[in-house]
Design a protein around this nucleic acid. Structure first.
Length: 683
DNA sequence: CTAGGGTTAG
């Protein structure tokens, strides 16, 4: 600006409101007019033609090498970007490597390279290249950092983006607003994204950086995707108060927040507000409105709006159809969903798989397994593109029709496409192997899932049923009072109810445990039990009892003791009794007293029969006499006493231990104590 | 002629 004003008397163009680009243009014009002897020579022809030749070459590395002495770093950057823009990912990396070998890289090279690695879905390589940068100022260069973080976020690697960001900060990065909005955009699809976003925003503010319009847009999107509707409204208002005019991004995110709860009234008011502010709803805005109608079950309006979208040319991809079909099938109108799906296909709208996966799942959920499978096959015949969701959906439908060949085909595809299985994949397979009664295979799958770091649940992924009027007749449990978690346990299943949904979690792992027990794999039972115990989720009380029963029957008493030690209070007296009896007879003798203490700690009163068995064990092993004496002493302190036959047995054998006097004393103390304490505990 | 941020579907 100052430079420009040296050449020109300030024209009205150069007021602060004048766009920067115009200023630059004026400045450039001024330079050519007022300073025709501009010192900068144009790029020498050899360099320009070398760049052109390398760009056009089928083997850019060979071409680069030919012009090695002519080209400069910025020329190489042009070539690098050209490879990226033409999507030649292989050449891109080769060119970059060539540049690295000759130390012809600068911050721009790294920024561009990371950007294209993001586009080519290769975040692993970006991380690798970034961490190999030796030059510290380069590693904390804000544009290099932003582009590598953006590459991670774009590819769903949210956790690694936050981790890397922390490292960058430790190394001295000064983040800018772009850094924050890059990270914030990762929060949109993150489980605890809202909390994380607030922390980032606080941090940003503490660095003296201000919220801008885009960051507000991101924040609204985070609210919408996490169902923080009131917060979204508050931020929308706050940004207006701070002088940022909401644009279509802000409006559609707020509308999206309304769509989650199908808040039709608020959505209509917002559309009014948008029109009165002079904005015209675009394709995304109208598609989001369709979502409001569709989720709200207002299908007449939804269909009208879809027709409008079609007329405006806004329904060329499958998205709006998906929204309507999804709303229909989740609202119980599966046939109408099918009709819409067929109409979409007849109109020649191409599906990337979303519409197929909605229909395949819906038919599966509705019990139309054959029809569901046919659709999966139809998709397979017409499409090569699979992602994890589509693979899981197909896998599920093939499993439920026991089409083993197709199941294997899906698993092979997953392998070939380098797509890692997730919780849903594992659950589907475990259930399938269970239904096929190949329990050891189910176990192997559970083990595999655990080693791959997936959270193991007692219950499989839920199926969801959307509640609508009249449904309580068919689901009497909806009329029952809910416990504090809105949970019901009925038979083997867990039912969770929220505002609109009934989630049915079918038990899975405990079923596998029981079946493994029956099939003679008790160690595997204990292994599954431990995986469940150490998963972060709470497990159902009865799980401990089930595991204990299996372990006791299989005489794995040391493992059974581990179950009892931490969970005795959740186990029924009869199971404890069975365990205790077995343990006294054949458990590790050195653990007998510990077992007694654990049982007593749970509040369960140990029977005289159990003590009798323990004492018989000790009498047969005189070298454990100190343990026997400890037990007798401890019993006295807890108000326990032995029955008369055990008493006689002890007195008869007391000289074996050389403790005749002591034993008699303790037994008499016990009798006195049990007369006062013991009575209170009698059942 | 460096790079980088926000909206809709399973």
């Amino acid at each position: 600006m100052l430079a420009a004003s040296r050449f020109l008397s300030p024209p009205p163009l150069l007021t602060p409101s004048c766009p920067r680009r115009t200023v630059l243009f004026v400045r450039a014009a001024a330079q050519t007019l007022e300073a025709p002897e501009a010192p900068k020579p144009p790029r020498p022809a050899p360099r320009r033609s070398a760049v052109a030749e390398v760009k056009a070459s089928p083997d850019p590395v060979a071409a680069l090498t030919r012009f090695e002495d002519v080209l400069q770093t910025k020329d190489c950057n042009i070539i690098l970007r050209h490879c990226g823009d033409t999507r030649r990912w292989d050449d891109l990396s080769k060119v970059f490597q060539w540049m690295q070998e000759r130390e012809m890289t600068n911050a721009a090279s790294y920024s561009s390279y990371f950007k294209y690695l993001g586009l080519s879905r290769d975040p692993a390589r970006a991380l690798q290249v970034y961490s190999a940068i030796q030059d510290r100022p380069m590693r904390v260069h804000v544009s290099v950092c932003n582009s590598v973080l953006g590459c991670l976020v774009k590819n769903g690697r949210f956790d690694s983006s936050f981790k890397l960001y922390d490292e960058m900060i430790r190394e001295g990065l000064s983040p800018d607003p772009f850094t924050y909005s890059t990270l914030l955009s990762g929060c949109i699809k993150l489980k605890q994204g809202y909390t994380k976003a607030l922390a980032l925003i606080n941090e940003m503010k503490s660095r003296g950086l201000q919220m801008d319009s885009v960051i507000y847009g991101t924040l609204l999107a985070i609210c919408a995707s996490h169902n923080y509707c009131q917060e979204a409204e508050a931020y929308f208002q706050k940004m207006k108060d701070e002088g940022h005019n909401p644009n279509l991004f802000h409006y559609s995110s707020l509308l999206n927040a309304y769509s989650e709860n199908a808040d039709y009234g608020k959505a209509e008011l917002l559309m009014k507000d948008l029109r009165s502010s002079g904005l015209t709803p675009n394709k995304v805005m109208l598609t989001t409105l369709l979502k409001v109608y569709s989720k709200g079950g207002i299908f007449e309006k939804a269909k009208e709006l879809l027709a409008e979208l079609e007329a405006s040319g806004f329904a060329q991809d499958e998205m709006p159809y998906c929204i309507l079909i999804d709303g229909l099938v989740k609202g119980g109108k599966i046939q109408e969903g099918k009709t819409q799906f067929n109409e979409m296909k007849e109109k020649g709208v191409k599906s990337d798989g979303y519409a197929f996966s909605i229909m395949i799942s819906a038919l599966h959920r509705g019990g139309h397994h054959e029809e569901s499978k046919q659709l999966a096959k139809e998709f397979e015949a017409e499409n090569a593109s699979y992602d994890l969701v589509m693979l899981n959906t197909s896998l599920r439908t093939y499993c439920s029709t026991d089409d083993m060949e197709s199941v294997m085909r899906m698993l092979k595809k997953m392998d070939e496409l380098n797509i890692s299985p997730d919780n849903i994949t594992f659950n589907t397979l475990i259930r399938y192997f269970c239904d096929a009664k190949v329990y050891h295979l189910a176990y192997k799958t559970i083990e595999d899932m655990h080693t791959k770091g997936h959270q193991l649940n007692e219950y499989s992924e839920p199926s969801r049923i959307v509640l609508h009027y009249g449904m309580s007749e068919h689901f009497p449990l909806l009329n029952e009072p809910l416990n504090q978690n809105n949970q019901h346990f009925i038979a083997e299943n867990l039912y969770v109810v929220d505002k609109k949904n009934l989630y049915v979690f079918q038990e899975l792992c405990s079923h596998v445990m029981v079946q493994l027990g029956k099939a003679g794999f008790p160690s595997e039972v204990f292994s599954v039990y431990n995986m469940l115990r150490y998963s972060k989720r709470t497990v159902r009380k009865s799980l401990h009892e089930k595991a204990l029963g299996i372990l006791v029957s299989a005489e794995l008493l040391k493992d059974a003791y581990i179950v009892v030690k931490d969970n005795a209070e959740l186990i029924s007296p009869s199971s404890l009794e069975k365990f205790a009896r077995s343990f006294m007879v054949s458990g590790n003798i050195n653990l007998i007293n510990d077992v007694m203490k654990a049982l007593n700690r749970s509040g369960w009163r140990i029977s005289q029969d159990i003590f009798g068995r323990a004492i018989q064990r000790y009498i047969r092993k005189p070298d454990k006499k100190h343990l026997l004496m400890c037990l007798l002493d401890w019993m006295t302190g807890q108000g326990y006493s032995v029955d008369s036959s055990t008493r006689n047995l002890l007195l008869k054998n007391a000289q074996l231990f050389g403790q005749k006097q002591l034993v008699a004393e303790i037994l008499s103390k016990q009798q006195t104590a049990s007369r006062t304490i013991g009575q209170r505990h009698k059942k």
